[in-house]
């Protein structure tokens, strides 16, 4: 491993290349992870952060090899535990920008508890969850996002358990930023990752990702040109929810709490549902939309501001020091009841 030596902390302009490590990338040819890596590397210079202040932390699985390929600080840890390790790092070093890279198995199965709590606490980390609906590194078992009835090596007669919806899970856990993007749309990924990275608090991005070896075209609904035109709903804050072919636009309206897909031309524009990233109730409905009756929303589903866990703890520490001065072990040892002998 070689390292560029003699750099300084002076602000410098980075390019994508500055974030490419010298490691050979070892994902299967055709894997969706390549596009995600490329989008992340392209987006990093836009953050304007010194490269040495960026840390990528991952668990176990195909997605979790990600840190090896980023020329930043990186830690490839234990299956499912990356959120816990990232939380400890943020506690120790709130000056660092911390990313967590995980997958549907790592983040939602073995690490479900940690993902829940890092979101609940609103730790300032950016979480990228690659969702390919399959266990790839262990060669093709069904995952917690695989569809009911999915036939895999471990479910030859079909999966008997119902799939989890990652964005709904994140929202239910109290995430303050929830977004979804697709590996085959590099521009959208870059934009979404950048928004997530700039969020103050725990940001969760579900990246729909293709495993061309064990679960090819699991997201074909958004790959196939015709299907995509019918089912992709681009979320833009302040804009009406419109989707579908140019010549036959559809729109979403809210009928009380119930969404309905309508032909855009059949309703007045003012009746269309306008996307509001700060509206928790509507975000909750958005996470549940899925074919065949509804499109798949991509983009920022929700973005709100809430207190950040480690910042509250640091404020307490600063207050304790401001009120009573820094700790002194010599004084502590003789505090309370003591007595002298001799």
């Amino acid at each position: 491993m070689s390292h560029p030596a003699g750099e300084t902390t002076a602000p410098r302009k980075y390019t994508k290349k500055d974030f490419e490590s010298d490691q050979d990338v070892r994902w299967c040819p055709g894997c969706g992870d390549y596009a995600i890596l490329s989008a992340a590397q392209k987006m990093m210079p836009d953050l304007g952060l010194p490269r040495e202040n960026i840390v990528f932390i991952s668990g176990i699985g195909c997605s979790s090899r990600f840190p090896y390929y980023m020329n930043t600080y990186g830690f490839h840890t234990i299956h499912g535990r990356a959120p816990a390790i990232a939380t400890g790092l943020r506690l120790a070093r709130p000056d660092l920008k911390v990313f967590v890279v995980t997958g549907d198995g790592d983040g939602l199965s073995i690490g479900g508890n940690h993902l829940l709590h890092v979101l609940r606490r609103n730790v300032n980390v950016t979480i990228l969850l690659f969702n390919n609906r399959i266990y790839g590194l262990t060669k093709g078992q069904y995952s917690p996002t695989s569809e009911l009835g999915k036939v895999t090596k471990s479910t030859p007669m079909g999966a008997a358990d119902r799939p989890l919806n990652p964005c709904a899970f994140a929202r239910g856990s109290g995430a303050t930023f929830v977004a979804r993007t697709v590996d085959r749309n590099v521009a959208h990924m870059e934009e979404t990752l950048k928004r997530a990275a700039q969020h103050h608090g725990a940001a969760f991005v579900e990246i729909l990702q293709n495993c061309n070896v064990y679960n090819d075209l699991a997201w074909n609904v958004l790959y196939d040109r015709e299907s995509k035109s019918l089912h992709e709903l681009r979320l833009e804050h302040g804009r009406p929810l419109l989707f579908g072919p140019v010549d036959d636009r559809r729109g979403l309206v809210l009928d009380g709490p119930t969404p309905r897909a309508v032909r855009a031309k059949d309703v007045a524009e003012s009746t269309l549902w306008v996307h509001d990233e700060t509206n928790a109730w509507k975000a909750s409905v958005l996470t549940k939309l899925a074919p065949p009756d509804f499109p798949i929303p991509i983009g920022v589903i929700e973005s709100i501001q809430e207190p950040v866990y480690e910042e509250i703890l640091l404020e307490q520490e600063h207050k304790a020091i401001a009120d009573r001065g820094p700790g002194d072990i010599g004084a502590l040892l003789v505090s309370g009841d003591t007595w002298r002998i001799g």
């Binding site: 750099e7 010194p50 040495e52 020329n71 600080y73 990186g74 840890t77």
Partner: peptide, 20 residues
């Protein structure tokens, strides 16, 4: 300490090559 320029590196639970 992460934040030290020029020493960006990756570690993890996989076996490491001696020195590098």
């Amino acid at each position: 300490r992460p934040g030290t320029p020029g020493l960006e590196h990756r570690i993890g639970g996989l076996e490491k090559e001696h020195i590098t």
